[in-house]
């Protein structure tokens, strides 16, 4: 499993175009916000900020994770199937995708802070939210990506399938973010964080259990 994880990382570093493409996607999205909002930063009240922040991250996460199965060739899949258990494949993919989407979250946060504004007051809790949300995204979207890869590789299907599934994670993240922006005491968002964590465990466990069934076909 560690080998698989290492292979993923290496492969990703080698496919520089993918990383470059994703970061360009993120940069251009944030830049469009910057251009359309311009200098009227008072428009960006906390709610709007967290809404566009999470919408951006959601779409870049869907795009990133969609690549995890859709990008792979037929032959590789059969090769994996013969040497490792499907559970290990999905676990390594989830870990790898959480690292990747955490990086995306951090990059997105940096871009938002430099180009737009940085209303976050409680950074510590906010990073907790970022970490938990990216794990949640990875755990749920990896399975969706596997399903849509089996169903004739359509990117549209990926977006349609994953949107309703990640909404609950997204809603909690937005609520916790709003608390962080208002600079409330961390104990206020404690509820959201615990629920997020519980949802992550649930979703992760379900993907771990269900993935072998997809893999077999």
């Amino acid at each position: 499993m560690i080998h698989l994880l290492r292979k993923e990382l290496k492969l990703e570093l080698r496919r520089k175009s993918v990383i470059a493409g994703l970061s360009l996607y993120l940069v251009s999205t944030v830049f469009i916000y910057y251009l359309s909002i311009g200098f009227n930063r008072q428009v960006l009240n906390p709610l709007v900020w967290s809404a566009i922040f999470w919408a951006t991250l959601l779409f870049s996460a869907i795009n990133t994770i969609a690549k995890s199965f859709i990008g792979e060739k037929r032959g590789i899949e059969i090769y994996y199937f013969s040497i490792v258990a499907p559970e290990k494949v999905v676990a390594s993919k989830i870990i790898y995708n959480s690292i990747l989407s955490l990086l995306m979250c951090l990059a997105g946060y940096g871009l938002f802070a430099t180009l737009l504004s940085n209303p976050i007051q409680d950074h510590f809790t906010f990073f907790g939210v970022l970490i938990l949300t990216s794990i949640g995204f990875a755990a749920s979207l990896t399975l969706m990506s596997a399903i849509s890869a089996k169903a004739n590789n359509s990117n549209v299907l990926m977006a349609v399938l994953s949107f309703p599934v990640v909404v609950s994670i997204l809603l909690l993240a937005i609520r916790a973010t709003k608390n962080c922006i208002d600079g409330l005491d961390p104990s206020v968002s404690y509820d959201e964080l615990v629920t997020l964590f519980a949802i992550n465990c649930l979703v992760g466990a379900v993907s771990y259990l269900l993935f072998p069934y997809i893999w077999r076909s």
Binding site: S140, L143, I147, K150, A151, L161, P164, V165, V166, V167, S168, L171, L172, R175, D191, E192, T195, A198, I199, L202, V203, V206, S207, L210, Y213, I214, R216, S217
Partner: peptide, 25 residues
């Protein structure tokens, strides 16, 4: 097979949406 997997997954994802989050808001 795929739709069965999605069905189970969607149901699990739906539980917090209907039963947990509304109680928090």
């Amino acid at each position: 097979r795929l739709s069965a997997v999605y069905n189970i997954f969607a149901f699990v994802a739906m539980v917090p949406l209907i039963f947990i989050i509304p109680r928090m808001m």
